[in-house]
């Protein structure tokens, strides 16, 4: 049986704009992945808990509030507590260019800003998941 890639799409923090998150969720669905969508205003604990129960390969975070430098380290910490370091984390939304290196340093796999083609994102996710399996 073909192995399905499972992705959690989550919106941490307090901004209420989830169009981007829904767009990505839909695009990954159309790319043949199983996407678990958790909805708005998720705490870092809620995201890590959902990722654990759903045993996802990838977590996509959509953050538009500017709070990414506060939220992302807490989410990475929660994932470490759950021993889920092997899960790849992607960040999308409004992320200033100068914050990207720091996010990557925290363990984020990639940052996708506005305008990134959804096809590119789904191809990247597939490539990274398959590569990690061969390890």
């Amino acid at each position: 049986m073909e192995r399905k890639i499972r992705v959690l799409i989550a919106k941490p923090g307090l901004d209420g704009h989830d169009r981007g998150a829904k767009l990505i969720a839909r695009a990954l669905r159309d790319a043949g992945m199983e996407v678990i969508y958790t909805g708005l205003r998720q705490t870092p604990q809620m995201i890590a808990e959902a990722a654990l129960q759903e045993d996802v390969d990838v977590i996509g975070l959509s953050i538009l509030s500017g709070a990414h430098m506060g939220l992302v380290p807490r989410i990475m910490e929660e994932l470490r507590k759950n021993k889920m370091e092997d899960v790849s984390v992607f960040v999308g939304g409004i992320i200033p260019e100068e914050d990207v290196p720091a996010l990557l340093e925290m363990g984020v796999t990639a940052v996708y800003g506005p305008g990134t083609a959804t096809q590119f994102i789904s191809d990247e996710i597939r490539r990274i998941v398959l590569a990690s399996e061969e390890e």
Partner: peptide
């Protein structure tokens, strides 16, 4: 999806009271 095999699983959205 019968066409792509992908899926959007959205039931957790209604179950946020249960987290934690």
């Amino acid at each position: 999806s019968p066409f792509t095999g992908g899926a959007l699983l959205g039931d957790r959205v209604r179950m946020r009271d249960l987290s934690g």
